[in-house]
Design a protein around this nucleic acid. Sequence first.
DNA 1: CGGTATCCTAACAGATACTG
DNA 2: CAGTATCTGTTAGGATACCG
Lengths: 114, 114
Amino acid sequence: MTNLPLPQTGSCPVATTVSLLSSKWKLLIVRDLLKGTKRYSELKQSVASVSQKRLTRSLRELEQDGLVLREVFPVIPPRVEYRLSPLGDSLRPLFSALKDWDLMYLDLKQKESS
Amino acid sequence: MTNLPLPQTGSCPVATTVSLLSSKWKLLIVRDLLKGTKRYSELKQSVASVSQKRLTRSLRELEQDGLVLREVFPVIPPRVEYRLSPLGDSLRPLFSALKDWDLMYLDLKQKESS
DNA sequence: CGGTATCCTAACAGATACTG
DNA sequence: CAGTATCTGTTAGGATACCG
């Protein structure tokens, strides 16, 4: 289901998001790109333990889905920058909600252990 | 990464959520349980195209992670009900944000094609 | 630097049969 | 009904080597 043909119109929002972002790495990539433009090597660093292959593929898919923009600078050595498209950036509130939930989660786990 | 040891404390919120919910089916399961208690067979129906095996495993993992509660009724034929724990239910705002984003997404896709 | 191409293994899906 | 067990493909992931 990782990359269904996109026009899943009519389907539910969760299914849409799953088709766009599930594949655990994509959320992590978008998380990093929300902080700004990143080079390939920076993403390789910050998205812990992702393999080169999967990082590249995930980026390609995010690009095809219109969430990420890829810019190649014709220099040697090569320089490739990734950043969020407006659509990708519109995910920001969702990540904010995610962060809020995490706070609640940590709080609850702490009470549990006390 | 599907089931990391939970105490990922110190890690980022996105990583936490990924560890809890990534594995595409889990989001779909939680989505359905947000509507209320469901029997196994109901989930099998509404979580489209999930296999019996994977549905069971996902439910077990969600249960272990404290998001889902499982109640077995000692009757014949058996009756097993699943529902969200308070922690699981606290995901509701996140799903709401997800729905909001989907609306924006659909809107943008529509403009694109016009 | 930012990738492909290749090989190999681990994880997952699907079908079927069986059980309390 | 709600699973478990088993067996068999497919697909995803990791490691390595190489290239413009």
